[in-house]
Amino acid sequence: MSQAARTPLAGDALDAALARLLAIGTFAGVGLLAIGVGLMAVAGRSPLDPKAPFDLGRLPVDVMAGRPEGVLWLGLLVVIATPSARVAASLAGFAMAGERAMVAVSAAILLVIAVGVIIGTALGESAA
């Protein structure tokens, strides 16, 4: 699709919407990490303490209890998920504009990331 044929949504408006999404994701993630670091200080935790394992099942409980590891993991998840959210939003924008090729590209990127999640889950924690 040529530049001229693009609808406004797939052009400047999409760029602006994605920019807002990235800014919100970044500030939300960094904000949660800052709260988590504050909770670390209150709890007397050091970065050199034994690593807190990632457990998605425990995450809501840890966050509600104000445990530093819970808030930190939530912040990290927001940070890591923000680029994928940008891709998902791009997919929606391209779909609304009828840019099928870019819809396919966006979907393929999300598929690759999903494959990474499946592989990481299947391999489990490294012994090294």
């Binding site: 970065p47 050199l48 690593k51 890591i80």
Partner: peptide, 20 residues
Amino acid sequence: SASAVIYLLRGGIDPYVAGP
């Protein structure tokens, strides 16, 4: 983020270090 997901699920990210 594609590789960070693998690092996270394989225990390669320490939240106490990553936060600060």
